[in-house]
């Protein structure tokens, strides 16, 4: 008889707290009824109990029937998006540490074995990390959004007229385009965040690497890094918008324009700030013997260095403005 209690417990422990007591009472009643019918008045034996419980089936199966709805870590509504984000994440991660590995090998070919070991190790550590965090994020959305997600995808109120137009090839944004964009941004962000030291002029003396003269001011880099990451973050937002819209529309051009204007403002603020660039750039070049102080070469490099801020600004702004104009033209052309 004690086995009945164990069976009932095994079923109800898999059910929501609120239902447990009621289901337990009902289930115990059922088992007793079934036993009664089975023995027809004679003494109940252990075999009878076992027979009845076998007839009811595995507690897990029964509990599943009581719960009704299927349970998902990541349900069908989110699955496609989850796979997409996971792919982007994994490809970005792999490209980042491949590039880091290559840079390290170029800088210091003697240590290639060490770097290679690190490279392999990063596969083992970083890939599970990416998978883990992505899955955790989506699982949380699934858990807290459980009821609401179904409503989003209810096919109620669907009309054939609400079908999206077959994309005009001129306006269409290929799926690969924003994905490549996002990967590019992630890559640059990671490189800037972890290897700012490599961002500069690489000095080789007698064919051997002797150091780097960084472009950026290392002392104030932390603050600017934050701003840079924000700018790239905006870039990723922009690519995500492109991805969602799937084609150029006026509202998408509007969004990209806003994102680009914010980026331009932030870049303008950073690049024109005195602390942004390496103040000792020219001196360090001379120290490394890249140019000789006072020579014509020195003057040329100095002029390039001082003018570069201006030109970088022009190019960046041109690029971002072009982005807006091109989008706008694509919308117009298709009309």
């Amino acid at each position: 008889m004690e086995m009945i209690g164990r069976y009932v417990y095994a079923v109800t422990k898999r059910l929501p707290e609120a239902q447990r007591k009621d289901v337990a009472d009902e289930l115990s009643g059922l088992i007793e009824d079934m036993l009664e019918e089975r023995v027809q008045g004679r003494e109940i034996t252990e075999e009878d109990v076992e027979g009845v419980l076998l007839e009811l089936g595995h507690p897990r199966t029964l509990a599943r029937k009581y719960r009704g709805s299927k349970k998902y870590v990541i349900g069908p509504e989110l699955y496609d998006l989850y796979m997409l984000v996971l792919k982007i994440g994994l490809i970005s991660a792999v490209s980042v540490f491949t590039i880091i590995f290559m840079i390290q090998v170029i800088l210091n070919p003697m240590n290639i074995l060490d770097y290679f070991v690190n490279f392999i190790v990063s596969f083992v550590t970083i890939i599970p990390t990416v998978i883990g965090w992505t899955t955790l994020g989506f699982a949380l959305v699934e858990y807290f959004g459980a009821g609401k997600l179904e409503h989003i995808h209810l096919d109620k109120g669907w009309k054939p007229s609400s079908l999206a137009a077959v994309p005009d090839p001129k306006r269409q944004i290929k799926r690969s385009e924003p994905i490549a964009g996002i990967m590019f941004y992630v890559l640059i962000m990671v490189i800037l965040a972890f290897s700012n030291d490599y961002f500069g002029i690489w000095i080789f003396q007698d064919g051997e690497f002797s150091g780097i003269v960084p472009f950026l001011n290392e002392e104030s880099y932390g603050l600017f890094l934050l701003l840079i990451l924000i700018v790239f973050g905006f870039g990723i937002v922009k690519e995500c918008l492109k991805f969602m819209y799937e084609k150029w529309t006026f509202s998408l051009v509007g969004f990209t324009a806003i994102v680009n204007l914010i980026s331009i403002a932030l870049i303008l603020f950073m690049i024109t700030s005195v602390q942004f660039w390496n103040p000792y750039f020219m001196n360090e070049l001379v120290q490394h013997g890249f140019v000789n102080g006072g020579s014509d070469d020195f003057e040329t490099v100095r002029i390039i260095w001082e003018q570069s801020t201006f030109w970088i600004l022009i190019f960046l702004m041109f690029g971002l403005v072009w982005d807006i104009v091109a989008g706008f033209m694509k919308v117009r052309k298709a009309k």
Partner: peptide, 26 residues
């Protein structure tokens, strides 16, 4: 109650497992 329903249905030629009917009733 659940088990009497199982019996009634059986008498009328409809076989149903209690393990299916009880959750259905709830």
């Amino acid at each position: 109650y659940g088990y009497s329903l199982v019996t009634t249905l059986k008498e009328k030629g409809v076989q149903v497992e209690p393990g299916t009917l009880y959750p259905l009733l709830r």
